[in-house]
Design a protein around this nucleic acid. Structure first.
Lengths: 239, 239
DNA sequence: ACGAAAAATCTTGTCGACAAACTTAATGCT
DNA sequence: AGCATTAAGTTTGTCGACAAGATTTTTCGT
């Protein structure tokens, strides 16, 4: 009976707890946007989502407002809401900010990490390694994110952490767009080694080393993304 | 007849245009929070605001959700919404991020400013000078903010600009809290000189000079805030 | 048949109402 | 009287409905 519905993810138990609706829609939509299930520019219909999640438009709208606040959707006044475009013309700004946040958060982690922080970081690193060895591309992207977020949180500066999270998630969208078609099994392994080096430098509280390791790490990732984009452009625009 | 109402700012013309309600509440509440008209921890009642602005609770709620997304209010689930507290224990993180954004935005402005950008910056500087000479403390705070935001926009990195705006506005709250009681007419003038030096360095595209000037400027402001807090603490907590 | 005006349709923004969860006041028990 | 329990009163979260604005389709004139 419950298996009869046609793939919608509206909870079968229609009575949700109060105050969970908006958060649920927010989380799911966020994931779908970052995983490119919802493509940039795609319209997001409030009534459709309301029906899909079996709730009123009010909590759906609240979720959209929050997503708009984070720049993940664009609400056109009196017109539709659309998934935010990836700002390719300004990718340089993205790479610049991403690199700086890699550096700053790693430095601060070396300075301010406390007992227990490194255990969490190492847990994230273990998950990342597992995803790499399993060849799980999507898992690699999110585990890498979680690894660096754990480092940022050890640095205890929420301003940096929040911006970093936003940048890493935006990067998730970009990677999702290019990584699947050009998968190379050889690539990920260096990241594992670099992550281990970063952990060691943080533990040694070596700020200078953390800075240079993070800079290298960031530059490598930026170069990889740029290569993927360039390769993709060569494929699509032969000229 | 219109003058009879008791100081409420609900528009007398009750028919607003569609789609303006939420934005209006958002702007006004934001200003009131940053100007400490609404004090940190103060509860924000949806029904009360709805009555005050002569509209339904729906647009009010949308404004509150957006403010919560920026961290200006805290929505306690199923309980009241309160104005966000100033995170005094982590002021160090605030100063660190503020200083870095001063540096980074000024550097990027030197690198990437285009024709017309400096005119806007100089306009903001003129407004700042005027506020200083008039002894208008509140105007100084906002004009200083606008000056540095114009520089950040000339740097053309919206990630930095957005974080910087958030930090400058959070600083506005802190300054509002301490600046009025300890006003000193002597203090502001050095800022005008420093601003002029920064403009010149940006125009000369001297990145290194911009970095050092911005660092000095930021350190001075940070020290000023710390002094004000320390002085205030001495007054209030005599030990 | 082509283009412009008008009508129909769709989507959003706002509203008033209701019920759940929390807060406060009142009641009862030891 | 003091504390736990219950009842009343707020305040929020969600709902269905309606109207303004935009989009699409239809109609009409040349």
């Amino acid at each position: 009976m419950a298996a009869s519905d046609t793939g919608q993810d509206a909870t079968e138990a229609t009575d949700r707890k109060r105050g969970v609706g908006a958060r649920m829609v927010y989380d799911i939509l966020r994931d779908e946007i970052l995983d490119l299930v919802l493509l940039p520019g795609e319209p997001v219909d409030e009534a459709g989502l309301a029906e899909r999640f079996a709730m009123s438009r009010t909590p759906v709208r609240e979720a959209l407002v929050r997503l708009a606040g984070e720049g993940l959707v664009t609400m056109l006044p009196n017109r539709s809401t659309v998934v935010a475009q990836i700002d390719f013309p300004n990718l340089y700004a993205f790479f610049d900010a991403l690199t700086l946040m890699y550096r700053v958060t790693t430095r601060l982690a070396a300075e301010f990490h406390e007992a227990g922080d490194l255990a969490l970081v190492e847990g994230r690193q273990a998950a990342f390694s597992k995803a790499v060895l399993a060849g799980d591309t999507a898992g690699m992207i999110t585990c890498n994110r979680d690894f660096h977020v754990a480092i940022a949180e050890a640095g205890r500066n929420s301003y940096y952490t929040q911006l970093f999270i936003r940048l890493l998630d935006e990067g998730r969208r970009i990677l999702r767009m290019y990584y699947y078609p050009n998968f190379e099994a050889r690539l990920p392994h260096p990241y594992i080694v670099e992550h281990e080096a970063i952990i060691a430098a943080i533990r040694a509280r070596d700020v200078t080393l953390c800075d240079s390791l993070a800079t290298e790490h960031a530059d490598k990732i930026v170069r990889q993304i740029q290569d993927m984009i360039a390769r993709d452009r060569r494929q699509h625009v032969p000229l």
